[in-house]
Computed example of a mutant assay.
Amino acid sequence: MAERVVDGTVDVLLTGPVFFDLVMTGVAGAPRPGTEIYADALATSPGGVANLAVATARLGLSTSLAATLGDDVYGRWCWEFLGDREGVDLGRSRLVPGWPTPVTVSIASGDDRSMVTREEPSPFTAAELVGDGTRARAAFVDLGAARGGRGDDAWWRTAAHAGTKVFADLGWDATERWDPADLGPLADCFAFTPNETEAMAYTRTDSAAAAARALAERVPLVVVTRGEQGAVAIDAARGEEVTVAAVPSNGRDATGAGDVFGAALVYGTLHELPLADRLSFAALCAALAVEHAGGAVGAPGRGDLADWWQHTRDGADRELARRFAFMDDAFPEASGRRRAELTFPFADYGSTAARRSNPEKRGTS
């Protein structure tokens, strides 16, 4: 269960688009015009910011999501999955008749994936959805959305000044200019989590470590992710630099792995884990996520993590067991939330929470 909300303050506040993801795995290359290819498996999942919402909720963090979903079969299924099955607070979200829920088809082939997305601009800004009086211990912000003219930073800047720890990402610069001016908003952020390609491009450096050191002059916590090479982080306030290796996994689908890493990083930060343990924990959660198809549905819960630790603690890899010895205190028993089944039931949605809810109370336009 999520941790108790005290005085209206949630652990994590999230904004951004929610997608209905259709994920096909085990595809042997991309189809050519006029041809047909087959996938080994199919998964459905809420995507986009829902990856973060599910990942934080499954770790036990009280999570509030401010997002727009269409009042169609895709949006109502995502609403039910997030609210009823995962316990995400949707009080700031809206079901909008006549607006289509964004849909992404993700094709996983080998170690990579390609995507096709259909999305219309949201009829509401993030600030309109969040409203006034927001209280959260942590929040995520997509600075790339602001760079592309799709963001609204008033809410998160206000939250940051009120004490919310803002974790920022920037994403790929489609112009490939990598303008350092885009890093200006980091002055109001607590943490920045780019991948190594993005970090080196923005800082004009030639290594993840050098990029992290340059970025640490702008923000208190920098974490540069390196995929199968792990991650490097700098806590500027403590003058601490840490590099961790990735956690071995049987990778199947990387959809949402970065979001799971970020969610675990927030968990470790809010629970004041040492920096090395925080990064190792985030790497573990990402490794477990890629072993399952789909983004949100593959995010590990506390029960999955406890299962992994019991198996690892009693296994032959003593170095890995020593690295994760902190898990004895964090997850002492194999209990808690676990992954969901990969299903998309075409049930009677008239009985779902979304249809039962009063549109006025839900803020539906």
Results as ranks from 00 to 15, higher is better:
23 V>E: 03
181 A>R: 15
311 H>A: 13
219 V>R: 05
126 A>C: 09
260 V>E: 02
92 R>W: 05
106 S>M: 12
259 D>Y: 02
288 L>W: 02
229 Q>F: 12
287 A>T: 03
29 G>S: 10
274 P>H: 06
7 D>E: 14
73 V>T: 11
246 A>K: 03
283 A>F: 04
4 R>C: 09
356 R>G: 10
271 H>G: 00
216 A>I: 09
157 R>P: 03
314 D>F: 00
211 A>P: 11
182 D>P: 07
19 F>I: 02
25 T>K: 12
348 D>Y: 00
252 R>I: 13
344 F>C: 08
247 V>A: 08
133 G>T: 03
89 D>R: 10
52 L>T: 13
306 A>N: 03
75 G>P: 03
25 T>W: 10
76 R>Q: 11
32 R>K: 14
21 D>L: 08
20 F>T: 02
193 T>G: 00
40 D>A: 15
47 G>K: 08
315 G>M: 06
49 V>Y: 02
72 D>N: 07
75 G>W: 02
174 A>T: 14
109 S>D: 11
48 G>R: 07
300 P>C: 06
132 D>E: 15
109 S>N: 12
217 E>M: 09
58 R>S: 06
164 T>G: 02
229 Q>K: 15
113 R>C: 01
343 T>R: 15
347 A>G: 12
236 A>D: 06
186 L>F: 05
151 G>P: 10
131 G>A: 10
196 E>K: 11
177 R>Y: 00
222 V>E: 08
178 W>S: 02
98 G>F: 01
274 P>W: 02
180 P>T: 06
164 T>I: 05
355 R>W: 09
311 H>I: 05
183 L>A: 06
40 D>K: 15
258 G>D: 02
52 L>G: 10
9 T>C: 13
142 D>G: 08
66 A>E: 06
52 L>S: 14
241 E>K: 12
161 H>Y: 03
118 R>K: 13
80 E>M: 04
119 E>W: 14
276 A>M: 07
183 L>I: 05
193 T>H: 12
330 A>Q: 14
42 L>A: 10
169 D>C: 10
231 A>G: 02
177 R>Q: 12
208 A>S: 12
167 F>I: 10
213 R>I: 05
178 W>H: 13
261 F>K: 04
288 L>C: 02
232 V>T: 14
317 D>C: 10
271 H>T: 14
346 F>M: 14
80 E>G: 11
320 L>E: 04
335 S>N: 13
165 K>F: 07
175 T>P: 03
5 V>Q: 06
185 P>T: 02
29 G>H: 09
62 S>R: 09
154 A>E: 13
308 W>P: 00
